[in-house]
Simulated assay, not measured.
Amino acid sequence: MNQVHIGFLIYPGVIQLDVMGAYQVLAFPPNTQVHLIWKTLSPLVSNEGLTLIPTVTLEQCPSLDVICVPGGGMEQVEVMKDDEILNFLKEQSLTAQYVTSVCTGSMVLAAAGLLRGYKATCHWAFRDQLAMLGAEVVPQRVVIDRNRITGAGVTSGIDFGLTLLGLLCGKDVAKMTQLMMEYDPEPPFKAGTPEMAGAEVVGPLMQFGKPLLDAFWEQTRASAALLKL
């Protein structure tokens, strides 16, 4: 069975569950090797304060079968305008079997010009920004368009991972992985989408997240201008 190389781009301020939900799924089969990629091998701190240790640098990274970009907090703005990272993603996309993302990671792919003309998704609060970067936004949990696979907000990384694993290793392996994880969610509240949560929950959350949204809007406009969109 051929080794499958899967790489997650991690960076300061990355959303840890964007990485770890999919990582947990994709690391299960014995023929997958998962890399955590950054500019250096020094530990970095996620948006939530968890320390992550890269396993390979951008320069050392092998040719990947799958490249995945997770979303992040305020620091993601810096990633979206970092030519070294954007060029790395462009280069890997030339040979990768799948080019993928979780949550707002799709905006990094889009900033690199890798989602122009592709159907894609992201966290519900950032769909308009993703559309500005040339993607055809589809409000689904996981969206597949040719070799682009994108997951919606944070927890969708598990669904994304199982979907991708089914394509890489077959449905039986994906089902076995789901069973191993006992992934049969029964959330205590019906508040996982804006429609279910209602205005009384959405309003305060949007106000809480306004600094992040404003920063993303500013960078989205800058990235769209560079892409001549």
Rank of each mutant, 00 (worst) to 15 (best):
Y23N: 13
V138P: 04
N147R: 15
E200Y: 08
Q33Y: 12
L26V: 00
T150N: 04
N31C: 07
T32F: 04
V137W: 03
F8K: 00
F189C: 08
G198A: 01
P29L: 02
A120G: 11
N87L: 09
W217H: 13
G203E: 14
R221D: 06
F189K: 09
P29N: 06
Q76Y: 04
R116K: 15
A125R: 14
A199L: 14
M181I: 12
L52G: 00
I15A: 08
G13Y: 07
G198E: 03
L41E: 02
L226T: 13
D159K: 05
L213C: 05
V25T: 05
I85S: 06
A174E: 02
L26H: 01
L44I: 15
G203P: 03
M176E: 14
G105K: 11
L229E: 15
D18M: 13
R221A: 13
G161P: 14
H123W: 10
W124S: 13
H35C: 00
F216M: 15
L26E: 00
A110T: 07
G113E: 02
S46H: 11
E136G: 05
Q60Y: 01
K228W: 06
C103L: 03
D83W: 04
Q129S: 07
I158M: 11
S46V: 05
V142R: 05
D65S: 08
M206C: 08
F126L: 15
V77C: 09
C61R: 00
Q207V: 04
G21H: 13
E84T: 15
F8H: 00
G113P: 02
T193L: 09
P43W: 10
G117H: 09
E84Q: 15
R146G: 08
L89I: 03
D159R: 04
A112K: 03
S101A: 13
A125L: 10
N31R: 09
M107C: 08
D128R: 13
T32R: 02
R146H: 14
E91A: 11
V202Q: 03
S156W: 05
A225V: 09
D83N: 13
V99L: 02
P204C: 02
V66I: 12
F28Q: 14
S93E: 05
L115H: 08
V56R: 00
G7C: 02
V19A: 02
V142N: 07
T193W: 11
A174W: 02
I10D: 01
K90S: 10
V34T: 02
A120C: 13
H5Y: 09
L109N: 14
E75C: 06
V69H: 06
G209W: 13
K228F: 05
R116F: 06
T32I: 14
T104Q: 06
F208Y: 11
S93W: 04
L36V: 00
G73Y: 07
W38P: 04
C122H: 10
